[in-house]
Design a protein around this nucleic acid. Sequence first.
DNA 1: CGGATTCACTTAACATGTTAAGTATTTCCG
DNA 2: CGGAAATACTTAACATGTTAAGTGAATCCG
Lengths: 172, 172
Amino acid sequence: MAKRPADPTNGSATAARQVPMRDFSRSLPMSLLRAREAVMRQFRPALREHGLTEQQWRILRALASIEAAEVTELARTAFLLGPSLSRILRDLEARNLIERKTAKTDQRRSMVSISKEGVKLMASVAPSSEAIYAEITERFGARKLAELQEMLGELEFCLASANARDEVTDDA
Amino acid sequence: MAKRPADPTNGSATAARQVPMRDFSRSLPMSLLRAREAVMRQFRPALREHGLTEQQWRILRALASIEAAEVTELARTAFLLGPSLSRILRDLEARNLIERKTAKTDQRRSMVSISKEGVKLMASVAPSSEAIYAEITERFGARKLAELQEMLGELEFCLASANARDEVTDDA
DNA sequence: CGGATTCACTTAACATGTTAAGTATTTCCG
DNA sequence: CGGAAATACTTAACATGTTAAGTGAATCCG
């Protein structure tokens, strides 16, 4: 097994047709997607062993660091859309990994927090998670990793402002 | 609107509980996820105008550059899993954007190619797609973009070999 | 006060991601 | 030749991504 990137079908012999365009495999979205997938492939097995998906793990991690949070705030922190979060919270609550109670001052808001069981589960996963992260850091190089994260942050930032401009154009 | 990263709830006042761990928002998977999302957010509206999802667009692009391909080959090129690709091809075929015919030498294989309509659709989307890519390049800087892609490629590469090792360990 | 808005979610609906199982075909090999 | 194993998909099942619509509670204002 273990397919290498050296397969004949992807050779350079495929002439561009009508639309030149950047070589597909080198587009930025593809690069980001593949890099992320390569990283997550390292983590998924460990999470799976504990019955957690990547997103559930994100939520638990977020909750563990901020004590309690409203759903909207949690969505922003864990970078999930509302509907996804709604479903996942329902499931995590059913598994007793989180707790919810509606805020007293505002009945619309619901405060989410990690449960004792949730903390315990986190504690059991964290070591392997950290080990995997450490291995990635070692393989790729700590300095390069920091550089990469820096660049990713800049990319995000300079595209975020592009959206703000769109909002201005919207008020026609 | 246009929420800035400066919200009080994420302040530095939240003491770590029991599991220190890296600050959540700075984990590599999150950085990659957010960067990619920032990029795709630029493209999605244009694709949507033409009734295409990101994945459908990936497939059309891949097909346009390689003439005809087997499903497995296409999956590798467009970086999609088999089941996803199966569904999408079914839909694209129903919309007459692609064509399929089983290979003569091997009845299991099916050769996929882009249809005349598919080419036409691509031609109508490509300009705005290229324009968006150009704007991203300008905002972020062409040189930095190249550097970023280089690093992403390296990351992918050095993690790919990690899997090969796992396979060796599997044969117990 | 009270209807219109806004807000904080939740549901719904459809598309994809992910893993496992199923199907048909081909190849291996005894 | 013929059954076991491998191959190339496809289906199934469940979880998430994404957009739109729905619901109940708070707020704005007239």
